[in-house]
């Protein structure tokens, strides 16, 4: 099952499947390490179409809502680490 990053639940873990944006967007994301096959988890998001905060490798990144809605992810089961 695939979702966009914006649809992911709080604390849910997922693998990034694709970045469906233009070249500039992909580039901006990639150089910060946000790329295919990375495992991320969603921390939370803000009201008023504010950014989505994710955690990756123990570090947090805030991603604008529009960009986040173009990042496809596949939730990893249950989301609770062993």
């Amino acid at each position: 099952m695939q979702k966009t990053l914006t649809e992911l639940n709080r604390k849910e873990k997922a693998e990034i499947i694709s970045l469906n944006g233009g070249r500039t967007m992909q580039h901006r994301l990639e150089k910060m390490g946000i790329r295919k096959h990375q495992i991320i988890s969603r921390i939370n998001s803000q009201f008023m179409r504010g950014p989505v905060v994710i955690s990756m490798n123990g570090h947090q990144t805030a991603i604008g809502r529009g960009m986040a809605s173009r990042i496809l992810v596949r939730p990893l089961n249950s989301g609770i680490p062993k």
Partner: peptide
């Protein structure tokens, strides 16, 4: 007006 993308 591109969106924010920052490291915390």
């Amino acid at each position: 007006a591109p969106e924010m993308l920052i490291d915390l």
